[in-house]
């Protein structure tokens, strides 16, 4: 990270975390996290369950509150100020494990909600925008349906389109494929790969190692609330340095 950081010194990083610590009650979930994500960088975070990887990315858009350390998103430091939190959230898109589409709204309405109410776009404009992104995730023909009528893979693609409609600078993916049936994983990953090709800054918590190999600039391995290893995918997979990374990789790729 050090050489990269000096190389990119001039330009502000997209996400910066310095000495971030978080506790759930007495449980120390995030321990001294230091992380810098440059614009256009694609990062995959993996690790055993309970290692704090979801918590880490959820701190970035303040769905979780950290108790110590600094988080700066796009040059805006994250504080308790509600306006500032909303400002940061506008530039950060998030895709959840369980999609979290709004079941009482159609696919199109799901996508138009934030553009109309937050960015104050007229409905026509919001719908055009939404249709454009729905076409990109290849689900435009389902625009008038309700989420409950779609398959898991389709719902997750809608969720990605919904986030993209806000033109985020960075996208957070919180295990986007782990609630999906195997045959649907590919359709979602394809969309994510496509997004990565277009230069979107991405932080993905995922166990899809194939995805990590193809698109990631860096792979981060977390365990017990700390970053254990951080490397280019090639080195990470072929020559893992720490013992725990080796153990984890052997478990996940073992069969």
């Amino acid at each position: 990270m050090n050489e990269q950081a000096t190389r990119a010194g001039a330009e502000t990083p997209m996400v910066e975390m310095r000495g971030v610590n978080k506790w759930y009650g007495d449980f120390h979930v995030l321990r001294d996290i230091d992380l810098e994500v440059k614009r256009g960088e694609r990062i995959v975070i993996c690790g055993p369950s309970g290692s704090g990887k979801s918590t880490l990315i959820r701190c970035i858009n303040h769905l979780e509150e950290h108790q110590a350390g600094e988080i700066v998103v796009g040059g805006v430091p994250l504080t308790q100020d509600v306006k500032r939190i909303e400002q940061i959230r506008r530039s950060v898109g998030m895709v959840f494990q369980h999609f979290n589409l709004f079941p009482h709204l159609t696919v199109l309405e799901n996508c138009c909600l934030a553009p109309m109410w937050v960015q104050k776009k007229p409905r026509r404009e919001a719908e055009e925008l939404a249709m454009r992104y729905l076409e990109r995730v290849q689900i435009a023909e389902q625009a008038r349906k309700y989420p409950g009528q779609l398959s898991g893979g389709q719902q997750q693609r809608v969720a990605i389109a919904r986030s993209l409609c806000m033109h985020p600078d960075v996208m957070l993916f919180d295990e986007p494929t782990s609630a999906l049936d195997p045959e649907m994983i590919k359709e979602v990953l394809d969309v994510m790969v496509e997004l990565a090709r277009e230069g979107m800054t991405m932080l993905c918590v995922t166990h899809e190692m194939g995805f990590a190999k193809t698109v990631a600039d860096r792979v981060i391995f977390m365990d017990q609330g700390q970053i254990i290893e951080e490397n280019a995918p090639e080195t990470f997979f072929n020559n893992p340095q720490s013992e725990r990374t080796q153990l984890f990789l052997s478990q996940i790729l073992g069969h």
């Binding site: 990270m1 321990r31 970053i227 290893e229 490397n231 340095q241």
Partner: peptide, 15 residues
């Protein structure tokens, strides 16, 4: 690249 070989001990939450 970063490799952290030492475990960070859990600390009590801030007072």
């Amino acid at each position: 690249m970063t490799i952290q070989l030492k475990m960070i001990e859990a600390r009590p939450a801030p007072k």
